[in-house]
């Protein structure tokens, strides 16, 4: 069931078109990702979905509600974690949870939620004493305390160290396991690949691709490499005969096979057929990074933020 339907969304600031005719649907219970470089229009898009911004064109429906017209109802079923949103410095974790729970008619048990996001020990800590990861976990918990059907998470791991980022990812997966539909905005390829059931890659306010992460990568016809050490003698022609293989090189005892398509599967099948054990097998597969370059013709900008 499609719970969020966005069609032909348009938004411009002054003369600059930021969102240029976006259309997508989000299915109930999935993690739908919006991935793109900075300035692609990701945040503007989800802010329109959350009713924070008024679109200049197109339509949005969230569980049948119009974010502008039915804002009051929407806020009861949609929780949002905003990019760079803080709490008062001296506000304590438990106080923030209790306060935000009081905003909703039918809130979640905030104590339980606080425990679930791993902040029970920090219940009496002031906001400005929390680490970056703890602040983000609190922010996610506050987005969930109203028992929403949809959660929008915007750039939630930006600025976190790798360990905190991984913890946060687990938390997002737990959110989906609660049956909450998640709309996730990110400019991290790895994050999108790990978390999203489906994702839209947007660039310049337009969708350039929309698929599952594996689907997006599969469409990319870039070169891949498979490296391994054969445990017994291997005739190179076994490999070069494969349609997927473009070249075979040897570096000492290591064989490096270059090719396209489902190269790993083709190579390993041949090796199994001839009962050759491949040691230290390593595959360099196309990633979402490659997909992005293939789709937009330019590099994904990691550094900008």
């Amino acid at each position: 069931m499609s719970v969020i339907v966005v069609s032909d969304l348009r938004k411009q600031y002054d003369q600059k078109v930021v969102v240029d005719g976006l259309s997508f649907t989000v299915e109930e219970g999935e993690i739908f990702g919006i991935l793109g470089p900075n300035g692609a229009g990701k945040t503007t898009t989800v802010e329109c979905v959350a009713g924070l911004r008024k679109p200049d064109g197109g339509s949005i429906s969230v569980y049948g509600l119009d974010p502008q017209r039915d804002a009051a109802k929407l806020h009861h079923i949609l929780g949002m974690q905003l990019q760079q949103s803080e709490m008062p410095d001296k506000l304590r974790v438990a106080e923030a949870m209790e306060l935000y729970a009081s905003f909703y008619d039918d809130p979640a048990d905030w104590r339980e939620l606080m425990t679930d996001v791993g902040l029970k020990d920090k219940a009496d800590s002031a906001f400005n004493k929390l680490s970056g990861g703890q602040k983000q976990r609190l922010s996610i918990a506050l987005a969930l305390v109203g028992s929403p059907k949809v959660a929008i998470l915007d750039e939630l791991t930006t600025g976190l160290d790798p360990a905190a980022r991984r913890d946060t990812w687990e938390l997002v997966e737990e959110v989906r396991d609660r049956g909450i539909t998640v709309l996730l905005v990110t400019h991290f390829m790895e994050e999108a690949e790990r978390l999203c059931d489906r994702l839209a890659i947007i660039d310049g306010g337009k969708i350039v691709a929309l698929d599952t992460p594996t689907g997006l990568v599969a469409h990319v016809d870039t070169e891949q490499k498979v490296r391994f050490r054969p445990a017994s003698a291997l005739d190179d022609t076994l490999l070069t005969a494969l349609p997927e293989v473009t070249s075979v090189e040897r570096h000492g005892r290591q064989v490096v096979v270059t090719g396209t398509g489902n190269l790993v599967h083709a190579v390993t099948s041949v090796l199994v057929q001839h009962q050759i054990i491949a040691m230290d097998l390593r595959a360099e597969q196309a990633s979402l990074d490659d997909a992005f370059i293939a789709l937009t013709g330019r590099r994904f900008d990691h550094s900008a933020q």
Partner: peptide, 17 residues
Amino acid sequence: VGYREKGILRRLSTTPV
């Protein structure tokens, strides 16, 4: 101004209150 600067007012506008 601090509440606006920190995005607290914006965050509140995503809640029913």
